[in-house]
Design a protein around this nucleic acid. Structure first.
Length: 161
DNA sequence: TCGAAGATTCTA
DNA sequence: AGAATCTTCGAA
C-alpha cells in the first residue's frame, strides 16, 4: 500500500543556541541520531503515547533536524484513516503525532536513512514564496522566541494551536 | 535511583 | 480546561 503526502508545515531544531532542541545537551542516547548525517530519520517517543518524525539536516558531527508538523494527504487516504483508528475528518494529518499515525510510522524508523521501501522524500509541488509563513515554534517552553516554524498559508492541514 | 518535564492529542 | 501515559535526562 503506497501512501503519499505533501509536507506543509515544519519546524527547525538547531545545534547552537537552541535550548528546545534535544541535541542542545549533547549526543545523549536519544539525541545522538541528530548528530548523524543528513537524510537520517529521527523518530522519538513522547508523552507516553506519540511518535514524532524528523529528518536530520546537518553533516555528520553537527546536529540539527526538521520536525514534520503537518502534511497534506495525497494518496492512500482510506488507509491513513484506518491507521488513525478514530473519526478524523480534516484532522487526519494536521499535527506531528497525527501524521505519524496516519502514515504508519513508528520508532523502528529511528536512525535509518531515508529511502524506499520504508520512507522516502521527493521534491513535490513547491510552496509559493508569498504563501510561506514563518512563525515561532509550538509546544515548547524554552527558546520560544526563535522564528523556526514554517508553513503554507491557507493550507487546511496545517496544525492548530 | 528518583522525579520532573516533555517538539501532543483527545475528551469533557 | 485537564487527563492520559511513559520515556528521557539531570540531579542526588
Amino acid at each position: 500500500m503506497l501512501l503519499r503526502a505533501r509536507i506543509v508545515e515544519t519546524e527547525a531544531y538547531l545545534e547552537k543556541d537552541d535550548a528546545a532542541a534535544h541535541c542542545s545537551r549533547g549526543p545523549t542516547p536519544r539525541a545522538k541520531v541528530m548528530f548523524g548525517k543528513a537524510g537520517v530519520i529521527y523518530v522519538y517517543y513522547i508523552y507516553g503515547n506519540y511518535f514524532m518524525l524528523n529528518f536530520v539536516t546537518e553533516k555528520t558531527g553537527l546536529a540539527g533536524a526538521v520536525l514534520i508538523r503537518a502534511v497534506e494527504p495525497l494518496e492512500g487516504i482510506p488507509a491513513m484513516e484506518r491507521n488513525r483508528k478514530m473519526k478524523v475528518g480534516k484532522n487526519l494529518t494536521n499535527g506531528p503525532a497525527k501524521l505519524v499515525l496516519a502514515l504508519g510510522i513508528d520508532g523502528s524508523l529511528n536512525g535509518r536513512t531515508l529511502g524506499l521501501p520504508h520512507l522516502a522524500v521527493y521534491e513535490g509541488k513547491p510552496v509559493k514564496q508569498k504563501d510561506l509563513v514563518t512563525t515561532t515554534r509550538i509546544g515548547i517552553s524554552v527558546a520560544q522566541e526563535l522564528p523556526l516554524r514554517f508553513y503554507e498559508k491557507g493550507n487546511p492541514y496545517v496544525s492548530k494551536k
